[in-house]
Design a protein around this nucleic acid. Structure first.
Lengths: 193, 193
DNA sequence: ATCCCTCTAGAAGGAACGTTCTATCATGGC
DNA sequence: GCCATGATAGAACGTTCCTTCTAGAGGGAT
C-alpha cells in the first residue's frame, strides 16, 4: 500500500476513536508506521491536511457503502431496518468504536477549523444528494425524499453517539424502527393503493 | 455567582464550541475569570472533573428544557416540529454554535475517557426515561414511546451536527418534519379514530 | 560514476499542555 | 489581636504538542 494511503487510513481510525484535537502527529506516525518527516513530506498542510483527506476518503467510502446496503433489499422499508441492524451489529462487535469519523470530527471542530468544516459539508451534501435520488426512484416526491434523507443521516449519526455512550444496540435499533415506519407512511401516501 | 458555577458554565460553553481535548485549563481560566489554582481548588480531579460536572449540569438543564418545550403545545405532533424549529432558529442566531455539549463530547471521548462516557450515559438515560413517560401519557405504548424517544434524541443530536456542518437550518427542519410525521402515524395506530 | 530527485528518518525548536506547588488574601471564631 | 480556614493567584515543572530542519538512503537517467 502506498505510504500516503497508510497515513490516511491510520488517521481515519484515530479520528473515529478520539477525534481531531486529541490525535497527535507522533501518534499518527506510530499508528501508520511512517515517520513524522514522511507525513509532512506527503501532506504539506500537516495534521489538518491529513484529516482533510481522511474525511474526504471516508465520506466517499460511506457513500458507496450506504448505496450498496440500501440497494441490497427490494423493499426500501426493509432496507432501512437492515442498515440500522447491520450498524448495530458492527458497532457492538468492534467494541463500540465509532463507525463514522465525519460526524465525530464535525461535532468537534466545526467552529474552530473552517477548512475541515467545509470538507465535511461537501461530504454530507454528497450523501444527501445521492440519498435523495435513491428515494425519488423509490417513489417519493423530491421534497419528501430530501427531508427523509436528512432525517435518516441525522438519525444514523445521532444513534451512533447514543449507542457508543450507552454501549447498547438499542438506540440504533429503535431509530431504525421509527425511520422505517416513517418511510412506510411516506410511501403509502405517495403511491396509494 | 459562585466561582465553581462560573467555571462550570465557562467549561460548558467551551465544550460546545471545541470539545474536550481542544479545551485547555489555561483557556478555561481566562474564560471563567478564575485563575488556574482556583480551578484545581474547586475541582480536585482537574480538567476531567470540570467536564464531568459540566455534562451533568447541562444534561439536567436540557431535560427541563425539553419537557418544557414539548409541553408547550397541546398537540404532541406540533410539539415536535416546534422543538426542531426553535432549535433551528437558535442555532442560526448563535452563529451555528453547537447547542448540546453532551453529544459533542460523547462523540469525541467515548473510547478514551471512561468516566466521561459513563456520565454521558447517565444523562442520556435520564432523557430517554423522561421522554418515554411523556409519550406514554400521550397515548403511545411503552415500547413505541421508548423507540420514538430514542429516534427523537438521535435525530436531534445528528441534526445539530449536520446543521452546524452545513450552516443551514434545513437538516433540523427536515428531521423535525419527518419525526413529527412519524409520531402522528404512531398516535393514529395507538388510538384509532 | 555522478547527478538528481523522491522519500525516509528522527532530532531540534519553541509553544502550549495539565498539574502541582508555594505564597498571599479574606474572613469568621475565639 | 490572633489563628484557622477556604479561596485566590500565578510561577514552575515536566511532558507533549505541531512543525521545521538536516542528513542520508534508494533508484533512474545521463
Amino acid at each position: 500500500m502506498r505510504t500516503d494511503q497508510r497515513i490516511t487510513t491510520a488517521m481515519t481510525e484515530l479520528l473515529r476513536r478520539q477525534g481531531y484535537a486529541a490525535t497527535g502527529i507522533q501518534q499518527l506516525a506510530e499508528a501508520s508506521g511512517a515517520p513524522v518527516g514522511s507525513i509532512y513530506h506527503h501532506f504539506k498542510g500537516g495534521k489538518r491536511a491529513v484529516a482533510h483527506r481522511a474525511l474526504e476518503e471516508s465520506g466517499a467510502a460511506y457513500l458507496e457503502l450506504l448505496v450498496l446496503l440500501l440497494g441490497r433489499y427490494d423493499d426500501p422499508v426493509a432496507g432501512i431496518e437492515g442498515v440500522f441492524a447491520d450498524a448495530a451489529e458492527t458497532i457492538e462487535s468492534t467494541g463500540w468504536a465509532n463507525l463514522c469519523p465525519v460526524g465525530t470530527v464535525l461535532g468537534e471542530v466545526a467552529d474552530v477549523e473552517p477548512e475541515l468544516r467545509a470538507a465535511g459539508d461537501r461530504v454530507i451534501a454528497s450523501w444527501i444528494e445521492a440519498g435523495t435520488e435513491h428515494y425519488e426512484r423509490c417513489g417519493l416526491s423530491g421534497p419528501d425524499a430530501r427531508s427523509f434523507v436528512y432525517a435518516l443521516v441525522a438519525g444514523l449519526e445521532g444513534a451512533f453517539i447514543l449507542a457508543r455512550a450507552q454501549r447498547s444496540r438499542e438506540p440504533l435499533l429503535a431509530a431504525g424502527r421509527v425511520l422505517a415506519g416513517s418511510l412506510a407512511a411516506l410511501l403509502a401516501t405517495a403511491r396509494p393503493g
